[in-house]
């Protein structure tokens, strides 16, 4: 393959990758609202396991533990709350970042504690769609650029 073609394709890929990764995407703007969720924690799950909000929403999570002491830590927002059994503890924050954020139990509650997780979805998960588009682009460029001759091992 000619070197100039390789360089051209690589530059086009870099440009395309930059666009896919960073270009602003159109999205319906939703007026921020107050959202309140009641989340029940028991060994080793949250119910509901997934909660959704829009970007800019003021989110309040009422955590209720139904067995032992559980916690709830929100990835990406670095906020947490702890609930004693039978008591409700609340956590509030403004959901100003879009994407998927894991909810993690922050208090050791049993053997599977490190895997007690839930999910918070805020707005549209652009990372997922951008990653899938990048994968397609990288695969396309990879198969068109990679030399097919064998190499020494």
């Amino acid at each position: 393959m000619k070197r100039s073609r390789v360089i051209t394709t690589a530059l086009v890929f870099a440009l395309g990758a930059g666009v896919v990764a960073f270009a602003p995407l159109p999205g319906a703007s939703v007026k921020p609202a107050n959202r309140r969720f009641r989340v029940e924690a028991s060994s080793f799950k949250y119910a509901p396991a997934t909660i959704k909000a829009n970007v800019g929403d003021h989110v309040t999570i009422d955590l209720v533990s139904t067995d032992v002491v559980h916690g709830l830590y929100v990835d990406g927002y670095d906020v947490s709350v702890t609930a004693d059994p039978g008591r409700t503890a609340s956590l509030s924050f403004v959901a100003n970042r879009a994407g998927m954020f894991r909810l993690r139990c922050s208090v050791t509650c049993g053997a599977m504690h490190p895997f007690m997780l839930g999910k918070l979805h805020v707005g549209r998960n652009d990372l997922l769609w951008r990653a899938l588009a990048l994968a397609l682009l990288a695969g396309l460029v990879g198969v068109s650029l990679a030399p097919m001759r064998g190499v020494r091992t």
């Binding site: 028991s42 060994s43 080793f44 799950k45 949250y46 894991r102 599977m112 997780l117 999910k119």
Partner: peptide, 11 residues
Amino acid sequence: VMLGPWGDLKM
């Protein structure tokens, strides 16, 4: 199992 939100699957 370990990173999903499905408690019943974990159990």
